[in-house]
């Protein structure tokens, strides 16, 4: 009951937003029926909703290639809803795995390397041009390079995501350390703290809030990186499903997978926000932050 009432209150307040969402959904359907008829039955220019959740959904079973649980259309089996769901789950799991492992590895490597490079201000100045180049070199254009080094494998995708995320954390860490007020460090030095002790007890806690502010940025980046890696080369994952659909201009399947990716991305952002609230609860708020 409470949830319904809250929804009602939200709708009363944000009815314009709700109307916009409905207009988008209805507008897409109308566009689907108005658009010029495509010569191919499987590739309407704008696939209407009933097509997306009908033919396109069952069509996804084309991407189920294991001779178990559901028939494999590639070997002459029928297209089944079960096969479609299995294909979606299988490839989603692969993508989410690459995303998560890449994020964690990249985050850890970036922060540790950043702390190491911040050991002295001279080292920091010396690596600054390389870091600038790493940041400016367009990540998505580097996909072929990673495929060349690591092959079209799971690892290529993971390392690529980790690289993209790592560069952000590396630069974030170096900048955050440079921004730690000098008086904290001077105070600790006056009190006789060693360099390692200063790094552990002062610099690390001081840069944490700033590092957390990169979380959303890197999450969006990691999604782009993993989808991009699956677009170019890696022969599995939900991004690769988009490309398979595109080969035969199966717009309905493309739209369906796009919606699924949208749902995953929204869920991951929501999860991340929850996590951040939890973690930042004990972090002291910086003035002005």
């Amino acid at each position: 009951m409470g949830a319904i009432r809250r929804l009602g209150a939200g709708l009363r307040r944000d009815w314009i937003s709700a109307m916009v969402v409905i207009a988008l959904i209805v507008g897409w359907e109308i566009a689907g029926h108005m658009a010029p008829r495509s010569p191919l039955r499987e590739s309407p220019i704008v696939p209407p909703w009933e097509f997306i959740f009908g033919r396109a959904l069952t069509g996804l079973s084309d991407y189920w290639k294991i001779e178990m649980w559901a028939p494999v259309p590639q070997l002459g089996g029928a297209q089944t809803l079960l096969g479609a769901v299995l294909a979606l789950v299988f490839h989603s799991a692969l993508t989410l795995f690459r995303l998560t492992v890449g994020l964690v590895l990249g985050g850890l490597a970036g922060v540790l390397l950043g702390l190491a490079l911040s050991w002295s201000s001279r080292v920091r100045k010396l690596v600054a041009p390389s870091l600038h180049l790493a940041r400016m070199c367009p990540l998505l254009a580097m996909i072929p390079l990673f495929q060349f080094w690591f092959g079209a494998t799971n690892w290529a995708a993971i390392v690529f995501v980790a690289y993209g995320v790592g560069v952000i954390y590396l630069i974030g860490t170096v900048n955050a350390v440079a921004n730690v007020p000098a008086r904290y460090i001077e105070n600790a030095r006056v009190l006789g703290a060693s360099r390692l002790r200063i790094h552990r007890s002062i610099i690390l806690p001081a840069i944490l809030p700033e590092l957390f502010s990169s979380v959303f940025l890197t999450l969006g980046l990691a999604w782009s990186a993993v989808i991009g890696a699956e677009y170019i080369g890696v022969e599995s994952g939900i991004g690769r499903m988009v490309i398979w659909s595109e080969y035969f201009s199966n717009t309905g399947r493309m739209a369906l997978i796009t919606l699924v990716i949208l749902a995953y991305a929204m869920a991951s952002f929501a999860l991340c926000r929850k996590l951040q609230e939890r973690v930042l609860a004990w972090t002291p708020k910086r003035p002005g932050a």
Partner: peptide, 25 residues
């Protein structure tokens, strides 16, 4: 209110999933 849902969708989805659509359209 008008822009919020649009930005929420476009801002969350990795924009490059739209690339194949644009190539077709």
């Amino acid at each position: 209110q008008i822009t919020r849902p649009i930005v929420a969708i476009l801002g969350t989805v990795p924009i490059l999933v739209a690339a194949p659509f644009f190539l077709i359209w």
